[in-house]
Amino acid sequence: MKIAVIGKGGSGKTTVAGVLARCLARAGREVVALDCDANPNLGISLGVGLDMTEQLAGIRQSLEDGGVEHAPTPEELLSRFGAPAPDGVRLAVVTKIDQPNPG
């Protein structure tokens, strides 16, 4: 089962996605939560905390910067830049965040 949560900014996408992921995991499903926001913060709604959320975005960014070689399979990618979240959910940031210093 694949679920995408979309909507207006501030309307609760991330909150709903986080709760969905945790509820499905509690119901016994294996859940991978993907943060596709250029400004990723799903980690906070899932409950992994501010620091881990920021770290995950950083790992994703370093991949883009060539700091880490691209892994060939989705499983390897997940194990590389995914993180365990409560209830057994696995979280990965899949969008590139932008360089802090333009120009």
């Binding site: 900014g9 926001d37 400004n39 906070i44 501010l50 965040i97 932008d98």
Partner: peptide
């Protein structure tokens, strides 16, 4: 919303670039 436009210079015209923050952890992160 978010960081993309600002990182691509869309705020550069301004002398004062105000970041609006609310008390949430997500806001703190952004």
């Amino acid at each position: 919303a978010g960081t993309r436009q600002a990182m691509f210079g869309w705020a550069h015209f301004a002398r004062i670039i105000v970041v609006v923050a609310d008390p949430s952890a997500k806001s703190a992160l952004t």
